[in-house]
Simulated assay, not measured.
Amino acid sequence: MKQLPDLDLELHNLFDIVNGRTKTQLLLTAIELNIFDFLSTSQSAESVAAELGTHPMCTRFLLDGLAALDLVDKKDNRYQNLPDTQMALHSQSPAYVGRMFSMMDGMSAGIMADIGHAVRHGPPDTPADFGNEAVWAAHARSMANYQRGGPAQKMAATVSQIDGFASFEKMLDLGGGPGLYCIAMVAEHPRMRGVIFDQPAVTKVAEEFIAEYEMADRVTTMAGDYVNDPIGEGYDLIWASATLNFVRPGLTAMLEKIHRALKPGGVFVSHADGLTHERTQPAAYVLGSMAWMLSGQDLMFDSGEVAEAMKRAGFASVESTIVETPMMPMELDIARK
């Protein structure tokens, strides 16, 4: 008689991967329906369904799934947001990131719907359009709450400790998007002024936040293409967060341009990804950037790549460290002219 094999498989990780699509769809559906707006206080599935006009039984299944994901608490058949969920996923929270997650999914949905096609036939003939200002304006708006949910404050506190910061007079936020990093850094200084540089449609978004934080007297915008257009000069500090990837093929030339825009002794700070373990870690970034890569855009930096390019561009010194962010660990490279 044939014996069963003497095996004891451990498949938790594989099952978790297979369930990944379900997890994503539960979250995105809850965001689409604004489920979390109704769960600031304890609610039954029936009451949520009545508010939303949804099917009571399927609403309960969705809520049970959110509880399984540790996004909501269920007790006595009533559901309520957990504290982190209330902060991140209630649409009226200043740190609401639901729009960001929905946009991230929308931007990657096409290529990720059939990864096998890309693997078999290669990336699309038409590369991604990085010049679509409307898309980047929407992206900037979606990222604003992420930035002011802690990262901007943390990076401002870190930059304020740079030797000489107290004497800085002018800073540039290169590819600054909504500009919350610049606003936070200027707020750490009694008199420094800031300039947020990005595409024209994006600077309109930044101007909304400048007005919201009453910084119009100290923070301005400059619209253009930072690769081909002048970026100004005489800066004591230039900050670039998660934007240099788009100039990776010409990184050294871009850093030379940044070098020229700084005053003698000025500081350039890059906040960017840095892949390790033969470009397989951090997992969050490898997976989050998969759509870009399968589209033929290998823009992720290797660990130390930006720092080495800073040295080639003529910076006198470079200090590098790893900083934790809500997304993943990132590299912070501080270069002095």
Rank of each mutant, 00 (worst) to 15 (best):
L69M: 15
I231F: 02
G250D: 11
G234P: 03
I115K: 13
P83S: 14
A313F: 05
A211I: 06
A316D: 14
L244S: 02
V202E: 05
G106D: 13
K74H: 07
D225N: 14
S303C: 11
D298V: 11
C58A: 05
A95L: 03
L82F: 09
E32W: 06
I162Q: 11
L63G: 08
S320C: 13
A184P: 04
F268K: 12
F246A: 03
V72K: 10
A223W: 02
I111L: 12
I17D: 15
A216I: 05
N132D: 12
F197H: 12
N19R: 15
A309F: 03
S108Y: 00
T85D: 06
M310V: 04
S295R: 13
E214F: 07
M192I: 14
A187C: 02
M143K: 13
R78D: 02
P5C: 01
G175D: 04
L63K: 06
A253T: 10
N19G: 15
C182E: 00
M327D: 14
V135H: 11
K75D: 07
M222G: 01
G110M: 06
E207Y: 08
A67V: 08
F38E: 13
G194S: 09
G110A: 11
I196S: 06
A137R: 08
A242I: 07
P249Q: 01
S303P: 01
G106Q: 13
E324K: 09
